[in-house]
């Protein structure tokens, strides 16, 4: 996992112009990453992130990731404080996006991550199970959640579209296909 330290722009991440500069540098990192790789945006130590910076530097990049402009790549954010995330959450909600926040990359348990942006309880519940199991087939996930395979498939497709999980398509020996859903936190 690559790490991009946002502190390089100082503890106050302010204007849209500053955000545009960060966006270009983050994009450069993403272009250099192989498919399936994750980029961790480190926000620890940041005091302020404005709506404008958050939208320009992070939400736009996540939008492009979800439209697969960069291929199958992912973004996570490390931020231990809640306050600087507020404006980012507003920016993501406006664009109907979401991102995973991790508090300490070395000690990842259920309690050390959260998802901000669009809020859908059923998707959060599904995301929780994928992260808990690290890798899980959709059929097994549907049984755990007590929902139909089609319903579960719709949820994991949406989580994958939002860039919150990775998915691997597997051809089985009988000629069918199935999906393995992977947590991007523990990958």
């Amino acid at each position: 996992m690559k790490v991009f330290d946002l502190k390089r722009y100082g503890p106050t991440l302010g204007t849209r112009q500053q955000g545009r500069q960060a966006q270009q540098e983050i994009e450069k990192e993403i272009h250099n990453m192989p498919y399936g790789e994750k980029l961790l945006l480190d926000m620890d130590g940041i005091d302020i992130i404005s709506y404008s910076f958050a939208d320009e530097a992070i939400a736009i990049i996540i939008q492009r990731l979800t439209s697969r402009e960069y291929g199958n790549k992912f973004i996570l954010i490390r931020c231990s404080a809640q306050d600087p995330l507020e404006a980012l959450e507003v920016a993501l909600e406006r664009r109907k996006l979401a991102v995973l926040i991790v508090k300490n990359q070395k000690d990842l348990s259920e309690k050390n991550w959260t998802c901000i942006g669009i809020k859908k309880d059923h998707l959060n519940r599904t995301l929780e199970e994928v992260i808990k199991h690290k890798k899980i087939r959709t059929v097994e996930l549907s049984q755990i959640l007590g929902i139909s395979l089609t319903n579960c498939n719709n949820r994991t497709t949406e989580l994958h579209r939002l860039g919150l999980i990775d998915r691997e398509r597997v051809n089985d020996s009988s000629g069918g296909i199935y999906y393995i859903n992977k947590s991007i936190i523990d990958g």
């Binding site: 106050t12 204007t15 005091d47 404008s52």
Partner: peptide, 16 residues
């Protein structure tokens, strides 16, 4: 400090 940080957000958005 936390409140001032939020106030700073106000200043950034209006000043720019």
């Amino acid at each position: 400090r936390q409140t001032v940080n939020k106030f700073s957000e106000i200043m950034i958005e209006t000043f720019q």
